[in-house]
Amino acid sequence: MTDKSTAAEPSAPAGAPPGGTGLSPRQKQRISRTLQYVVLVAVVVFLLLRIEWGSLAANFAKPEVAAETWPDVFTVALKNTIIYSVGGFVFAFLFGLLFALMRLSSVAPYRWISIAYIEIFRGLPALLIFLLILFLPLALPGFEVPGGTYGQGILGLTIVGSAYMAETLRAGLQAVPRGQMEAARSLGMSHTRAMVTIVIPQAVRIVIPPTTNQFVSLLKDSSLVLFLGVTGDYVELTKFGNDLASTYANATPILVVGVTYLLVTIPLGYLANRLEKRQGKGR
């Protein structure tokens, strides 16, 4: 902030008035800080006076409506959000690993396929992919995504997630020092054996923190299942909140759903941070 930069300037000796303003750096710093507080208080007072708190609370935090979400918000909606995102994550990880290995393959066409896939699906909005999935049965007559509604949602998240995961895992694989492969080969392991036993386990360890963040991002993207037109037992948090909000013409369910997301995403964010720090120490 502004006062910090002033404080970091020890150049002018105390009492020496620079620039002819007659103010010492310390006085300037005090004035700057006072000003910032004044602005903050002014904004708060303005909001307190201008906003109709009664109407806001009635629309966003109505206890009766909030009570209506219970217990389905956990037993159905959160459960489904977790099914979609964990399912998507597992497949995204597996396919991401496959694409990462293809990306590093000595067979050129494998590299091209992998690069094309990664570039295309990282560059498209996730929503677009979900909309395309809707048209799959039309495009491929007789084709049905296995697993029904769950399958469709998980497929969408897998397509999006695996492109990002492939890049993360590639970086992880390349971060394992060359000497590891050489040591494994010099002990008589085949290339595949060395990859599976020595290189991939280390790469996975390296990418655990960024992967945790990717899971959080998939969890948020699972809200796009909304556009698959799911109903009943298959609704996840966002669809659930949106439906109830329409029913009661009240935004409270959306707020409840928002808090439910945060209950999962914030702890995961902390976890990713801690893993990252611990890894920094271990190496």
Partner: peptide, 16 residues
């Protein structure tokens, strides 16, 4: 290669 042992400058032990 099984018949030939190799020791590297950077040790290259498996850290995991």
């Amino acid at each position: 290669r099984r018949r030939v042992g190799m020791v590297f400058q950077q040790f290259n032990l498996f850290p995991h």
